[in-house]
Design a protein around this nucleic acid. Structure first.
Lengths: 252, 252
DNA sequence: GCTCCCGCCTGCCGCTGCGTGAGGGTCAAG
DNA sequence: CTTGACCCTCACGCAGCGGCAGGCGGGAGC
């Protein structure tokens, strides 16, 4: 009916140090001590430990566990809900990190300099200096900006003007298409999407259909991209996204 | 072209303290100081910070970031792959926690004592003492064991023997069904599944069809349950799972 | 020139949840 | 009586900063 720390530790799958720690912080103090000062845990202590480990599994901080267990008025359901929210937030964040890293791996596999389309993003308000200022402004909330300067440095002013001209031209035409009510899955819109892909391929890196649809999804998922396209014409982000998908499917 | 800590902090979206920290650990030391000892960051420092924040976003520990950035021989792609693995592991774990907590919320909403079917799990090798030992052995890796003792304490030895008898009886019959080649979605198997549900309802808690299919899925998903049923008869876990689903669908 | 306030500096403690000793008693077995 | 396995209590260390305290520096307004 009474157990030593070691026994409890083995049985519960935790370390002795952990039990010491729980004792220190008052989360789980053994109900007694032997004359030699050895901790003696009884069955009630084990039950409590069970509860503690349960909540720990669910990601509760130890202090909160103490509160939940010790306060009989505490509403476990409310705690669970709150914890659920916290966890789902963390989960979402982790998922984003995973996709971000997958994107980075994808790019590095194709050995393009990482995320050149971030450079592409900036087309709207182009000018070498404005761009640099812009880039610095944005650093805080952008993940994958890196290496773009290295790549950029290979292009001269001439090149940039040309890229911008091509891009603007393409932009005007797709906006016109959209404005005139041509559906996003029409041959014309798909052709425009294809042009978009080729601009990327010509100036930045071989852009497969798969990567292209990946970019398209990013235009909707990443608010920075969305904002860029929406600022050209409302609805353009979604329109372009659909056209790119349609184009990719028809060519596959 | 030169910035103070405060400026860099604002632009990069980090705190001054963070920059101090990065300086302390040698991750990012400003290229110079003013005569008064003020840190002065230049554009190269900003570039480096950009890289640092990028890798930090991806969840790399700071020390590793130092290594990646400082060692030109380091293979970023390899690091990315490793990090991807780490992240997916954490992701899986978090997902499990979320579903576990959802289960707990579900249970608490129906105000049953949490996860009594964990008790059910133990039926196979039943005996009060063996059970306690078993339970203690397993604590370490079980999430939702809690409260079961409290519930259990309401039953006497008599009750347990009776529950075990009923359960064993049911077990023998469903094994016989499976052995004789009766399909899992046959009326007989479904009836057996229904009996299973009623045993739970009678002795533990009102088990709805929805909860029942939830349990069924757990029998396949949770290796402890799977092992239990497979030890009775190979294939039983899957057979029971299918029968429960068929039964739930037909009664809905 | 003087005063203000804001921003910068360098310590240094605090948080989470223990890991990992150090240095020393205790207990059952041989 | 000795051994080896346990037990005890400090107490530092980790990651990644947050948030003080106490003390200069610098530019603006009087």
């Amino acid at each position: 009916m009474a157990y030593t720390v070691g026994q409890v530790a083995r049985v519960a799958g935790v370390t002795v140090r952990t039990l010491h720690h729980y004792d220190e912080i008052g989360l789980l103090s053994p109900s007694g001590r032997t004359s030699a000062g050895y901790r003696r845990y009884d069955d009630a202590d084990l039950q409590r430990l069970q509860l503690v480990l349960y909540y720990r599994e669910l990601g509760f901080p130890l202090e909160e566990i103490t509160a939940i267990i010790d306060d009989p008025a505490a509403d476990p359901a409310a705690h669970l809900r709150r914890q659920h929210e916290l966890l789902t937030v963390r989960l979402k964040r982790l998922q984003e990190m995973v996709t971000a890293i997958e994107f980075a791996m994808e790019a590095s596999k194709m050995n393009i300099q990482l995320t050149p389309e971030e450079r592409f993003e900036v087309f709207g308000d182009f000018s070498p200096e404005a761009h640099e200022a812009e880039a610095e402004q944005r650093w805080g909330d952008t993940d994958a900006y890196r290496e773009s300067n290295r790549r950029a440095s290979r292009y001269g002013k001439e090149d940039w003007l040309r890229i911008k001209a091509e891009n603007d031209d393409w932009g005007r035409r797709i906006v016109a298409l959209m404005a005139s009510g041509v559906p996003a899955d029409s041959p014309e819109a798909m052709e425009s999407a294809e042009e978009h892909r080729q601009i990327i391929s010509r100036w930045f890196y071989e852009c497969s259909y798969e990567m292209h649809t990946g970019l398209a999804d990013m235009y909707l998922a990443d608010e920075r991209f969305t904002a860029h396209y929406e600022s050209i014409a409302p609805g353009l982000a979604a329109y372009l996204n659909e056209a790119i998908h349609a184009n990719a499917i028809s060519r596959a």
